[in-house]
Computed example of a mutant assay.
Amino acid sequence: MKNNLLSLLIFICCAVATQLLSQRVSAQTATAAATGMTVEQLKAVKAIKIANLDKDTYFKSAGFILDRYEERPAYVFNYTDGITRKIYLYKIFTAADTKELGLLAIYKNEKSGEIKPFVIPGASADRKAWDAYIDDLKYVGEKEPGLMSTLTFVLSREMAGLLSGGGAKTEEGGAKKKEEYNFCFAPDAPVTMADGSSKSISNVNEGDVVLGYNAQTKTLTPTHITRVDKHQSVGAQGNFEMAGIWLAPINELTADNRNALTAPTLLEATANHPILTATGRKPFGDIKAGEVVYHYDAMTNGVTIYKVVRTEKTIRSVKAVYNLVTESGAYLVGETVVLDK
């Protein structure tokens, strides 16, 4: 009887904390739309598989953007049963217009490897979405010992932080700037066209054919631009900072005769734009010296490997930035393979 009452109390606390947190977050989002998450969207987000919960803090999948909530690391709980439990929180946005929909809370049992996702709708979500979330709390959450107590603690703790004025980088109303969820290049970033010529990204238009990259076959292939995004800053405080990496051919770096080395090539982008490395997709700002990327080889009309010889977090600031969306999901900037956001 006592256990049943305790479970009921935890369930109620979790539901109340969730509702209050979602209302508070939605109230802080300046760009919130009148309608929120649907039950279909909730199911789609639940189905997203995250390869590495500790490293994958920001990514796009199935038409959504998942961004680690306030850049928090996982909440870690070590109970007396010897099992480590973790809770990860992500904000959920639509990829098309970065409309905020709610939160994704992921529970992980480190011993069994069991992972349970809970999609927490925003306050303006459809009633059916809220019903689906409450069902998950009841019929999924209560079956895993320790899940409800950890989830309740995390949501209550975040709610307390919001009420006390805590939070990460904010603009008016407390919401993150929409530009923080975009990935972009400076206006003069050179895009390699399908014929091998180069064009500034600010002059590339929807429907243009550029040189894309097929990650499965590891070959270059023409691809159409399906969308061009442009973001313009307002005032000095809104400028976009460009990070930089310098690249050099690996065959030159390993040559005995170093007198004829060409100068390293500079590539610039916002820190969160993804680039293809030998170890997979990485945000531009996370690239380290010594890592390998893929570069266009005009002689073979294919790609060759270049090594990063230097990095810098801020090269310059620009007032406008551009992003391309392609059919292939990858294209060339500065003759280096970069990925769609």
Rank of each mutant, 00 (worst) to 15 (best):
Lys2Thr: 14
Asn301Pro: 00
Arg85His: 07
Glu241Arg: 09
Phe59Lys: 06
Asn3Asp: 12
Arg127Tyr: 12
Gly196Ala: 09
Gly207Trp: 10
His224Pro: 00
Thr31Asn: 07
His224Arg: 13
Thr262Arg: 13
Ala236Val: 08
Ser198Cys: 09
Glu206Asn: 11
Gly238Cys: 08
Ile305Glu: 13
Asp208Trp: 05
Ala51Trp: 01
Leu6Tyr: 15
Ala194Ser: 14
Tyr294Lys: 06
Ile225Arg: 00
Leu339Lys: 07
Asp188Met: 10
Gly165Asp: 09
Asn257Pro: 00
Thr270Val: 11
Ala175Met: 08
Lys176Ala: 11
Met193His: 09
Ala289Tyr: 02
Gly173Ala: 12
Asn109Phe: 03
Arg258Gly: 04
Val119Thr: 08
Ala263Gly: 03
Lys307Pro: 00
Ser328Val: 08
Ala62Asp: 11
Thr31Pro: 00
Ile83Ala: 11
Thr98Ile: 07
Val234Asp: 13
Lys230Asn: 05
Gly196Lys: 09
Ser7Asn: 13
Val337Trp: 03
Phe59Ile: 02
Ala95His: 04
Lys176Gln: 10
Lys46Trp: 07
Arg258Phe: 11
Cys14Asn: 08
Phe240Cys: 01
Met37Pro: 06
Val321Ala: 10
Tyr79Arg: 05
Gly235Lys: 07
Pro190Gly: 13
Ala96Ile: 05
Arg24Pro: 00
Leu339Tyr: 13
Leu42Tyr: 01
Ser328Thr: 09
Ser22Tyr: 01
Glu114Lys: 06
Asn4His: 14
Asn109Thr: 03
Lys218Leu: 06
Leu21His: 14
Glu252His: 12
Glu142Asn: 09
His231Val: 09
Ser198Asn: 11
Gly196Arg: 07
Tyr331Ser: 03
Lys86Met: 09
Gly244Thr: 06
Arg85Lys: 12
Leu163Met: 11
Thr226Phe: 12
Val321Tyr: 04
Glu206Cys: 05
Leu253Pro: 05
Pro222Gln: 10
Gly196Phe: 15
Leu103Asn: 03
Thr80Asn: 09
Asp54Ile: 02
Gly167Ala: 04
Lys138Cys: 11
Ala248Met: 12
Ser156Phe: 15
Lys43Val: 07
Phe185Met: 01
Gly141Ile: 00
Val308Tyr: 02
Ile245Phe: 12
Thr311Tyr: 06
Ile92Ser: 00
Gly161Cys: 04
Thr262Asp: 10
Pro249Leu: 07
Asn205Thr: 10
Ala194Tyr: 11
Ala269Gln: 01
Gln232Tyr: 05
Leu339Trp: 05
Thr304Met: 14
Lys307Arg: 14
Tyr294Gly: 01
Ala289Leu: 04
Ala105Asp: 00
Met159Ile: 02
Glu179Tyr: 15
Asp135Lys: 14
Arg72Lys: 14
Lys60Leu: 14
Thr150Cys: 14
Glu171Ile: 06
Ala47Cys: 03
Val318Trp: 03
Ser317Pro: 06
Gly122Ser: 08
Ile83Leu: 07
Gly63Leu: 03
Thr226Lys: 08
Val16Gly: 02
Ser328Cys: 06
Ala32Cys: 05
Ser200Lys: 15
Ser124Lys: 10
Ala168Cys: 09
Thr29Gln: 14
Leu137Tyr: 01
Tyr181Lys: 07
Phe77Asn: 13
Trp130Leu: 07
Cys14Gln: 12
Asp136Trp: 10
Gly113His: 02
